[in-house]
Design a binder for these strands. Structure first.
Length: 271
DNA sequence: ATGCCATGGCTGCCATGA
C-alpha cells in the first residue's frame, strides 16, 4: 500500500503535475494540502478519469485538504470527516480524514503561524493540541496515519539554517513540543525517522531515497542549493510502522514546469 | 532589512506563504 502526502499549493494550478504523479507513482492514497479551491472547483472529472475518487474539506481561495483514493487500490474511502474536532476556527479547511484499507487516514495543513508574536502563532499551538487529542482518539480505535504539512521542523536537522530561524516560526521549542505532543498522545512515530533514523543526511538530496527536506522556497534558487525544510510528515501508529517498507521524498516532482514548492512524501507499506 | 517566486482575489495591487 502506497500513501503519499503532498502540499500542492493550488490543485487547479497543479493539476497537470498531480495527474503526472498519479500516473508515475500510482499511490493508493494521495493526501493533498492547500488545494486552494472550493468544492465546486475540484477537478473531479479529470481525477476520476485518472482512476481516483476524492473526499475533501474545501474552503475557497485558501487552505483546503483532500484525500484521493485509487479505484483499484487499497479501498474506497469511508466515513469521511471534514474539520478537526476542537479546532478554534472551523471555517478554515485544514483537516480531512477517512478510512481506507483499514487505516484511518488524515490529511492536515497545519496553521503557518506567521510570527511568534502574531495571533496565528497561538492558534497554531492550539491547532496542534487539538490534533493531539484527535490522534489519541484515532489511535485508540485502530490503525492511524496522519499525513500532511505540519509547518514545524521537528529538529534542527530538519532546517537548512536553524540559526536563521531563531525568533521565527517553524523551529521554536513550543511548536516542536506541540508537535511531539501529537506523536506522544497517539503513540505515533514519524515514519521518515522511524525508517531512516535521525541521522539521515540533508546534504545528499539526490541519493536513492531522495532528500531529507520536503520544502524549498521558490526564490533565490533555494531548491537547487538544497536550502530546504522537512515539514511534511507521515505520523503512523506503531503497528502500522512495522509494515513500513520505504519512506522517501520524490525530488523529481519538485522539478520541472510549474512545480509546487513542496515535494511529495511517499510511504510504502507491506501488505 | 527586504526581495527573491508563486498563487488567488479583484483588476493594478494586496494577502499569503515558511
Amino acid at each position: 500500500m502506497r500513501l503519499i502526502s503532498w502540499n500542492v499549493a493550488s490543485l487547479r494550478a497543479r493539476l497537470p503535475r498531480v495527474l503526472e504523479l498519479l500516473e508515475d507513482l500510482r499511490p493508493d492514497v494521495l493526501a493533498l494540502q492547500e488545494t486552494k479551491c472550493g468544492r465546486d472547483q475540484l477537478p473531479l472529472l479529470e481525477l476520476a478519469a485518472a482512476g481516483y475518487d476524492v473526499v475533501d474539506h474545501s474552503q475557497g481561495a485558501w487552505n483546503g485538504v483532500a484525500i484521493l483514493t485509487r479505484h483499484d487500490g487499497a479501498g474506497e474511502p469511508t466515513d469521511p470527516l471534514g474539520g478537526l474536532p476542537g479546532e478554534d476556527d472551523p471555517t478554515e479547511a485544514r483537516w480531512i480524514e477517512a478510512t481506507v484499507g483499514g487505516i484511518r487516514v488524515a490529511s492536515v495543513y497545519v496553521i503557518n503561524g506567521k510570527a511568534l508574536d502574531h495571533p496565528d502563532y497561538r492558534r497554531k499551538l492550539s491547532f496542534l493540541r487539538a490534533m493531539a487529542a484527535r490522534a489519541e482518539t484515532l489511535a485508540a480505535a485502530g490503525p492511524t496515519v496522519i499525513l500532511g504539512d505540519m509547518n514545524v521542523c521537528p529538529t534542527d536537522a530538519d532546517c537548512y539554517a536553524p540559526e536563521r530561524f531563531t525568533g521565527t516560526t517553524h523551529t521554536s521549542p513550543e511548536e516542536r513540543a506541540a508537535l511531539a505532543g501529537v506523536l506522544e498522545a497517539g503513540g505515533l512515530v514519524d515514519a521518515f525517522i522511524h525508517h531512516h533514523g535521525e541521522g539521515f543526511p540533508a546534504d545528499d538530496p539526490k541519493g536513492v531515497d531522495g532528500p531529507r527536506y520536503t520544502w524549498w522556497d521558490y526564490r533565490a534558487g533555494s531548491f537547487h542549493k538544497n536550502l530546504g525544510l522537512r515539514i511534511d510528515l507521515a505520523l503512523v501508529d506503531r503497528a502500522t510502522a512495522e509494515r513500513i517498507e520505504r519512506v522517501w521524498v520524490s525530488r523529481e516532482h519538485r522539478k520541472g514546469t510549474k512545480p509546487s514548492d513542496h515535494a511529495p512524501l511517499v510511504v510504502d507499506l507491506r501488505d
